[in-house]
Amino acid sequence: MEKNEIKHLQKAKNILEARGISKHYGGIKALDDVDLVLRDGEVLAVVGDNGAGKSTLVKAITGAISRTSGTILFDGEEVRIDSPTDAKAVGIETVYQDLALVNEISITKNIFLGREIVKDNILGRVFGVLDFKKMDTETRDLFKKLDIRIADIYRDAQAFSGGQRQAVALSKTVLFGKRIAILDEPTAALGVRESKMAMDLVASLKDHGLSVIMITHNMQHVMNYCDRVMVLRLGRLVAVRDVKDVDGDTLVGLITGANKSKVA
């Protein structure tokens, strides 16, 4: 495995490396010394049973929760990521499960939440007066680019369907995630048809220059949309595979621990 890993490392550039990530809650090891490597331009799936530590891993990498230990390298250089803002600053945009949009504010305001554009004059600089015209225009351009047909961008987010909301959340990664998009179960709350739409959008993120880490429970999505897959079990990394080298059954075995002999 060591040799293989090294060969892979040399083949494609690693955009993100998280080394020895641990998160302990008291005596409980939610994450125990997990390594994650994301290559430039790939879609990496993170799979595992409930409680395997998938969301914890993502949150520990993006600074949404504090790490017990571990270092993060971006483009081969160590970076400090202690808060979601730090992660955004280096070009990592995250879509958290159930925590993507504020229901009470408009689509445009959701897209720009935390990164609003202020007017380019004294009102903007001194009082933080917002340039809604510019933000609306950018939102429309973004939706056009991604073929998301939501016209009523002034409306509160709660007026939209699960699929539309997920599309809006995913579009934020294109606008702001200059390099990496991290998606926590992007189809969790969606129906079959909406899931397909959302996953097509995920696939198109590549075309916009993003490398993607995606947590999922859906083995079909892993096989159809991802390049590599890493498997977590009880807070530990148990396997990293090229998707073309595995099938759904093997993955399920790795997730549940049924075929331990095959663990890399």
Partner: peptide, 13 residues
């Protein structure tokens, strides 16, 4: 919301 029942991402009300 009745105006947008289960519409897909690429649909508009």
């Amino acid at each position: 919301n009745s105006s947008t029942p289960n519409s897909s991402p690429t649909m508009t009300s």
